[in-house]
Design a protein around this nucleic acid. Structure first.
Lengths: 335, 335
DNA sequence: CCCCACCTTGAGATCGATTGCGATGGCCAA
DNA sequence: TTGGCCATCGCAATCGATCTCAAGGTGGGG
């Protein structure tokens, strides 16, 4: 900037003001300086500007992958979410700083906050980090989390009604005549735990008709879910066997689609032998073969709410959590 | 930092050195200072650090969406690519700054470079920005682009062999007995243009057998591609009509899958009446109904190459462009 | 007992911008 | 001619870290 100032024969202060469009500098001189800066290809150094102004005009998006070291940001649900969040942030004129968090790392959030790298933080998925979020939210306001709404939670979340959504999915399976419905997923993950509650609720309501709930632990990646399902099928025996099952509720679409693969690979049919329902309604769900029944989360709307709530928080407002409806979408995999 | 220094009874210099793990400060004092900083929740201010060190420990990923204002970062191919790139960057200990570029904006790249926000830049897709990239590459080294390899191009690209890949796809259609193969896509986009060349090459080779090449312009989003295909079907008439066609080569999988939807919606069957082949092999392609034949780009490998080449460039090396093979994957949509 | 190394530490410059406050000069009215 | 106001502009402090250079303290050897 001082170079431009020297060339223009003014001080750096004036250049700064001219480029900022301040009326404190004469219009003619302002235009002259701007022209000069453009010609010389001068661009304000963002780092220095951020330091001086104490704001960065950018948002951090952190994605904790605690339950699955192998889970990649390339996961279909995450990428959809990231894409929509990025769209919205860009639309607001902010930049987006993307960060993958791979625990064990106990102080990633204080680090991220303290580094002052961004003006606000969006965390996608609670993963194992509920306590960390809880602790940070006390002192740091501009923080919004995509995930399940837990009891006594002080941070601001956006998400769908996991309990109701899962419950409607399982009730749909029961109404369709299914009697042994397996829950495929890891209830230790907060969101999954809520979906499991919904699954249990549906079972309680129909206790006379269905066999007791049964969980098959499965992580969030396609490969591990496939393997979990494959192993379970092997242990359960074929249709009609003692441990037989006639439906699977996958905690996510990725898990459910993996289950479909494992089931068909075992020579069973979907939905003939086993009905399958997932959760998320990722783009792939409707394109799958057979098309996957699932509980739809409106990711785009969720992403917009995340960003919009964050901006309100950055302006000092203390926004409450938001829960969106989760709508059952019935397709062929459970027809 | 000066607060910590005061509490510890030392100077800021010493705190800085202690936190950096410098051996210049006595071991006992170093541990003491570190403990104090942790207790107080002190975190080094990244902005100030970046300014002083003249590096940011982060990479910009820019995505120009020139040909389609409505195209979102949520596009399946882009999200897969972003996810893998993010994984690799994170693995290197760097942060990732994601930026969506919506032309017309002539100086986004000089701006991005000049802002010194990142230590290197990855551009995903040339879109309409070939000239901009060309101009910037002269003076700025740490820049790598995902896209097509064009003649007389001075910037470093990573991509698949679009011409050969497209050609193998079209030759496959011809061998399968298809005679009127429509190219669905916009050849003005550099990568798509190369695929169109491959399409033409295959037609030249089999000029006696097939009818001349025919382009149906289609943008890169699912909706516009669907609409383009629908309109074309309406104009072409049914099977056996004068303008009838028996195959579609979609410039991307998103386009091809939209074509499948439009074709089946018109009462035609895939592959019975019309065979369809795409390009990319996005995750959805194999899950589609029918599973989509396509030209596979190894996105993960491509993402890793992008990042790895960029780091070599950041160290001053002048890396050449890299072209990966594009492998035809035959599935039911063209069987 | 002195001096010289060496080990530690601190003062201050620096990175590149922004901005409060004071200074300058021009112009108009008294 | 001079005082006063206003439109402009520049000086210098500031943001929070890093690093050079030099000084302080300690210990060992002569």
């Amino acid at each position: 900037m001082s170079d431009i100032a020297r060339i223009a024969g003014v001080s750096a202060s004036t250049v700064s003001r001219a480029l900022a469009g301040s009326t404190l500098v004469a219009a003619a001189k302002r235009d002259e300086i701007r022209r000069l800066a453009r010609e010389r290809g001068y661009v304000i150094n963002t780092t220095a500007r951020n330091l001086r102004l104490q704001r960065t005009q950018s948002i951090s998006v952190a994605i904790p992958l605690g339950h699955e070291a192998g889970q990649s940001l390339a996961d279909p649900f995450l990428t959809e979410m990231i894409g929509h969040v990025a769209d919205r942030i860009t639309q607001r004129g902010y930049g987006m700083f993307l960060q993958k968090i791979v625990p064990p790392m106990d102080d990633w959030l204080p680090q991220l906050i303290g580094s002052h790298r961004s003006d606000g933080i969006i965390v996608i998925g609670q993963s194992t980090e509920h306590a960390v979020l809880e602790a940070a939210a006390e002192a740091y306001r501009p923080l919004v989390v995509w995930g399940g709404r837990l009891a006594r939670q002080s941070y601001c979340t956006v998400g769908t009604d996991n309990v109701a959504g899962a419950r409607s999915a399982v009730e749909h399976l029961i109404q369709a005549g299914r009697r042994r419905i397996v829950f495929l997923g890891d209830p230790a993950v907060p969101e999954i735990g809520l979906r499991y509650q919904g699954y249990l609720l549906a079972h309680e309501r129909a206790a006379q008709q269905v066999v007791p709930a049964q969980v098959v632990p499965a992580h969030l990646t396609a490969d591990t879910a496939y393997e979990a399902m494959r192993a379970f099928i092997g242990a359960a025996g074929g249709p009609g066997a003692a441990g037989a099952f006639d439906a699977v509720f996958g905690a996510t679409d990725v898990i459910a689609l993996s289950a479909v693969r494992a089931i068909t690979a075992a020579g069973l049919s979907v939905p003939g032998d086993v009905a399958v329902v997932g959760y998320d309604d990722i783009v792939m769900a409707s394109h799958a073969n057979p098309p996957l029944s699932t509980v739809r989360q409106d990711v785009q709307r969720g992403a917009h709410m995340l960003v919009d709530l964050l901006f309100r928080r950055m302006e000092g407002e203390d926004t409450p959590s938001a829960t969106m409806p989760a709508d059952l979408v019935i397709r062929e995999s459970s027809a």
